[in-house]
Nucleic acid binder design. Structure first.
Ligand code: SF4
Ligand code: SF4
Lengths: 132, 132
DNA sequence: TATTAATACGACTTATTAAGTCCGTGAGTT
DNA sequence: AACTCACGGACTTAATAAGTCGTATTAATA
């Protein structure tokens, strides 16, 4: 419960790495350096590339590099890129009210949605550059 | 990812209910009223009873009632009671550093632990009485 | 132009956790 | 004694997360 996914952790580690080295870097390099499963990291980086957080170069001598400055990348945008959406702390935020079987009787929705907003701004304000 | 468990949601709903009615209430009552699976709710309430958040009365005409005022019950204490521990946003908080296979190379631990503390105080400051 | 080393992407399998169920025991009231 | 509640462990099922595999595509370079 309440855990960041490994994919997000791997993504953050990779981004921090790229923020430091500045040169173009391959997924393989990062995977071996940090002992991260290559296939998994590769897909994470593809997600980050698709949302333009990093820029990819195919072909031999290819790899990835940051698209912009690390202090313009919020951790929330990273999460959203990797997970495909902003994760909700309760089901109804992700799937809509109707999908919760007890939403008719739910009494705790509003306060939890406030917690959600609180949480979101924490991750919006946290930038990759602060991941030291 | 990052979801509150249903058990915690059920617990909060139950606590709010008890905060309102004030009289002794059975798990069955709450389960049918809110359409919550009885067996599951029952175990949740037992956990809350064991940690003295609510007081149980066995036997016929038994049930539960709040042990104290709702504004003295933090949502964090409820989570801890139900889950058995304070949940961490990353593995190493729950299971210790050694259990993470890449902890030797992890670069993002410290900032994430700060997020954890931030999150914890959010739930510590949030009281059941605010769950309106 | 053939080779090579990289990304791209979907399908698949396995592992872990969450959610829900079942069943018997113990306690207190009438 | 009977009834109805809490107690608690074992179990099953469902959902999600983590990891793997196969194949296609792209571009530098020898
Ligand atoms: S129980 Fe309430 S807060 Fe939880 S998912 Fe259902 S509607 Fe949302
Ligand atoms: S990768 Fe780092 S932050 Fe994540 S669990 Fe391992 S040590 Fe903790």
């Amino acid at each position: 419960m309440f855990k960041l996914s490994k994919k997000v952790e791997y993504g953050l580690i990779a981004l921090r790495h790229m923020a430091l080295v500045d040169t173009i870097t391959t997924a393989k390099e990062i995977a071996t350096h940090y002992q991260i499963p290559f296939d998994l990291l590769a897909k994470v980086m593809q997600k980050l590339a698709k949302t333009k957080i990093i820029i990819s170069h195919q072909g031999i001598r290819g790899g990835y590099k940051l698209a912009g400055s690390a202090n313009n990348i919020s951790v929330m945008s990273v999460i959203q890129a990797i997970e495909g959406h902003i994760p909700g702390i309760v089901q109804c935020i992700d799937e809509g009210l109707e999908n919760c079987s007890i939403h008719q009787n739910c009494t705790i929705r509003d306060p939890l949605h406030k917690v959600q907003k609180n949480l979101e701004s924490t991750f919006i304000n946290l930038k990759v550059s602060e991941i030291v």
